[in-house]
Amino acid sequence: MPMIEILDDACKGCLLCVPACPHELIHNTKAKLNKRGLYPVEYVDPDGKCTGCRLCAIVCPDAAIRVYKEVKKKSA
């Protein structure tokens, strides 16, 4: 399942990624403060909807989003 990781201390909470996600998986929860005293966004994806499209990472001005995709195993 593809997924993303928010690098909390790099995120400035500008929220540009929130509307960028086609599946609305990034939220401004204000649940925690980072080292800079800013609220980083949170990635919430209980149903595994993330497609790894990278749109959130592309619009992020702080390179604070890492996107992962599963390595497809070649069938033996």
Binding site: G52, R54, V67, E70, V71
Partner: peptide, 14 residues
């Protein structure tokens, strides 16, 4: 990278 036994490739990072 490997997370919980699954191999992932990083497709976007710094």
């Amino acid at each position: 990278i490997t997370i919980e036994g699954t191999e992932y490739k990083v497709v976007a990072e710094r």
